[in-house]
Nucleic acid binder design. Structure first.
Length: 277
DNA sequence: AGGCAGGCTTTTA
DNA sequence: TAAAAGCCTGCC
């Protein structure tokens, strides 16, 4: 179906934003997107014209939420003037089109653990291997198979050898511990829906293998806590180089996590271009 | 107590 | 060979 979306949305920028690892660019402008037990082909004809290979009901009941289309990211951007914060303003101009997807908390917990100390291709491979190993098989609109992300019980039941086969490295024990805690009901992700950002992060940090960075990513990408501000190596460089006198977290609340995404994407794209290796 | 160095699997560039 | 959306352990 054709959809006109006037608020910020750039599929290519979201695909490269580092928040989703089950998007695959199948050609110049078509993406195959897997989320929950669903799969859709999406393409962008212009700034505001999109094509989704699904029916209207599926779009309205699932993908509309997934893309967080009820939120205006333009409005969030416009809270910052170029005079007040030229660096952030410029980063937003460059990276306009990024949104914070509403992804599954459980999937984001495991995915965020997998991201530790790894680059994107390696992350994607581990996630696909886990999904093929114990996710459910489905068929997309082209008749091609895909696997949903594994349920906690299935992942918790994997042997050490099976986890190693997913190329998880030292993260295997973290994955197992997290999956077991969720599967056994010792940790309740759903309960965090009604917890504030700070409380969410501190509770997630109680899980073995989950530190502040991973917890912040789960809060932002899985629980849609838009004020959660993950600090990774790139953002630390931003804070050091661009905000030596401090960053205005209070003024930018409750959207610190959204602004973080623009700065993260901007710095990564620009350092790679300016430091060819 | 709280901060910090070292180690960790594997892949990628 | 270093770096990659880090975290745990042990030492001070």
């Amino acid at each position: 179906m054709e959809v006109r979306i006037t608020d910020d949305l750039d599929l290519g920028k979201i695909a490269e934003s580092g928040q989703c690892f089950r998007w695959k660019r199948v050609n110049q402008n078509i993406f195959r997107i897997i989320a929950a037990d669903k799969c859709v082909y999406a393409s962008q004809a212009s700034d505001d014209l999109f094509h989704f290979v699904c029916d209207e009901e599926s779009f309205n009941t699932f993908w509309y939420q997934y893309f967080d289309l009820a939120e205006s990211y333009q409005r969030i951007r416009e809270r910052i003037s170029p005079e007040a914060d030229p660096f952030l303003w410029n980063a937003m101009e460059q990276e306009k089109g990024i949104r914070i997807l509403r992804q599954d908390p459980w999937e984001m917990l495991i995915t965020s653990i997998v991201t530790q100390n790894r680059n994107i291709p390696a992350i994607q491979r581990s996630i696909e291997l886990m999904s093929e190993m114990c996710g459910d098989k489905h068929y997309d609109s082209c008749g091609a198979e895909y696997y949903s992300f594994p349920q906690p019980e299935r992942l918790a039941a994997l042997s050490e050898d099976q986890l190693n086969a997913c190329r998880l490295g030292y993260r295997s024990k973290y994955i197992h511990a997290a999956a077991a805690a969720i599967a056994d009901g010792k940790f309740d992700l759903k309960a965090l829906t009604h917890t504030d950002c700070e409380g969410t992060i501190s509770q997630l940090c109680e899980l073995y293998g989950v530190g502040t960075k991973v917890a912040s990513c789960v809060a932002l990408f899985g629980l849609h806590q838009l004020d959660s501000f993950p600090r990774d190596v790139w953002i630390n460089r931003v804070l050091e180089n661009e905000y030596p006198n401090g960053y205005p977290f209070t003024a930018y609340s409750p959207y610190n996590g959204v602004y973080q995404q623009y700065m993260f994407a901007f710095y990564r794209n620009h350092s790679r271009a300016s430091h060819p290796s």
